[in-house]
Nucleic acid binder design. Sequence first.
DNA 1: CTTGACCCTAAAGTACACTATAGGGTTTAT
DNA 2: ATAAACCCTATAGTGTACTTTAGGGTCAAG
Lengths: 152, 152
Amino acid sequence: MDKLLKIGEVAKQANITVETLRFYQSEQLLIPKMSNQSGYRLYSVQDQQKLNFILHSKKVGFSLSEIKQLLSLRTDKDQHTCEEVKNYTGDKIDEIESKIHDLQKMSLALSNLHNACCGGSESAKQCTILNSLDDPELFANSNNKTLGKNHD
Amino acid sequence: MDKLLKIGEVAKQANITVETLRFYQSEQLLIPKMSNQSGYRLYSVQDQQKLNFILHSKKVGFSLSEIKQLLSLRTDKDQHTCEEVKNYTGDKIDEIESKIHDLQKMSLALSNLHNACCGGSESAKQCTILNSLDDPELFANSNNKTLGKNHD
DNA sequence: CTTGACCCTAAAGTACACTATAGGGTTTAT
DNA sequence: ATAAACCCTATAGTGTACTTTAGGGTCAAG
Ligand SMILES: [Zn+2]
Ligand SMILES: [Zn+2]
Ligand SMILES: [Zn+2]
Ligand SMILES: [Zn+2]
């Protein structure tokens, strides 16, 4: 019933290498059970969910040691007080909200560039609308200026 | 009129070290003008905005080489066609939206933990509500389960 | 019963993003 | 005019997160 996958199958599904999975084990991030007749690693569905969390967290800029702490909130509850859990999660939530905010600004700035550009095969140097936003949009603290379309 | 700051002042404002700024120059990411009487680096307001963009982009998981490409959209327009610009920005926007999505899931999962935990000084092992969410919330593909409050 | 695809450990090597060190010039304030 | 506080270059070293190498076991298919 509890489907266990071997390292190669997990790696393939997650689009990472088996070496990365062994590395995560050596770092105590994701510890599968080991088959005691073959010595092979066997990953449960929960292990695969955990791996998903690791990969998504990495993508948005968390380090492996931060991810380890996040995972330990669930796994090592008895090592923390409720106060610690509450403070830590509160701080992380703030951090995440700030990342979301930064990403929304970047998305807006790039959308302005994207919408302004005609997408044709000529040099973007000629793209006057692209030229017209020559100071701010891509940078932080940008304002929400909307632009028209097309060249010249 | 154009206020130029020395490296130490810029570093202090951005809360990074002068070595990092010199490193960014060596990587062609942020190239200030050099005073030709003292040989000191002089950073313009635009340079500082650029630095802001670099720092915010880094925070959300972009590598220095990705950031360099993003910056080059504005700086080296003549080296790209409109088509390239449009495709590149389109792809980056998708990537950013996906990061936002992941962060929103993490935020929700951590908020559930945060709201469930009483914040008291006892071991979180005792925190039955924290115990009750013992499989999914923190992990990817989580669903939006809302929890009550308090211990026992 | 062997061959190929897969798995194992241990240890060395690599890419990225800094960080520190050595040796020296510039500015500013007393 | 001299000393603290700042700046410079060049180069070596560090931490993180893998990646590769070397030398073997395991397992399903033919
Ligand atoms: Zn264009
Ligand atoms: Zn165009
Ligand atoms: Zn609690
Ligand atoms: Zn509690």
